[in-house]
Design a protein around this nucleic acid. Structure first.
Lengths: 110, 110
DNA sequence: CAGTTAATTAAGCAATAGGTTAATTAATGG
DNA sequence: CCATTAATTAACCTATTGCTTAATTAACTG
């Protein structure tokens, strides 16, 4: 996948509240498909598909434990999105610029 | 629109390379629809629709100048996305933690 | 007013997304 | 072996997306 295609997949995956909720849940720790599905008023296959979308976009890594497929979050695509957003920081304020400057100073003095 | 719906719209708008390219162009300054359309191998109505999607998601504000509808970037939804991503910073490393700490130190000493 | 330029709207089309229920695969445990 | 649990796959449906061409609206300009 190209970088563009990766960003496409990452943004598309996040454009859904169920999928964002699944990621939020996984940020607390691993979970099985049934555990992830529990909070939602939709069928298990529907959740299974959401998980697949997140997996294809690189947000989720999966293991195998007996019948279970434990899901774990992989934040790499989130980092890619944060990096994308950082391109625009200069447009909306100086907080990041301050941070960058402070980090730069820190580099200089270490 | 709820916060969730705003995030839905923002992420969905960004899940397309044409729209991200339009935003990148607008980060350099205002542009008309025709100017924005020029780099793309697609019809003007297609670009017009992409602009509408970005506008509905809050990324673009539009003016009126004779026949022209100048487009300008509004970074508020990008900030919202950066804020969303920040929730997960702790998962992928300590760079942000360093920044936060440095900013905190800066607050303390000013 | 007539013509030109800028942009949107309308109508249509193929592909994708998000959901359903039913069937299937995979592994455990009596 | 059979039943149970976990999860996916299959088949299907409706709505949305992303694009097209043709028609329309809006404003300037000779």
């Amino acid at each position: 996948m190209t970088d563009q295609a990766h960003l496409d997949a990452a943004f598309a995956a996040l454009a859904n509240p169920t999928r964002r909720a699944i990621l939020a849940r996984l940020s607390q720790g691993e979970a099985t498909v049934n555990e992830l599905a529990a909070p939602f008023a939709m069928s298990l296959p529907a959740v299974s598909k959401h998980i697949r979308v997140l997996e294809n976009a690189g947000f989720i890594a999966r293991g195998r434990n007996a019948q279970f497929r434990p899901c774990a979050i992989d934040a790499a695509p989130i980092a890619a999105i944060a990096t994308w957003a950082d391109q625009y920081r200069h447009i909306w304020g100086d907080r990041f610029d301050k941070m960058t400057q402070l980090l730069a100073n820190n580099e200089d003095t270490k």
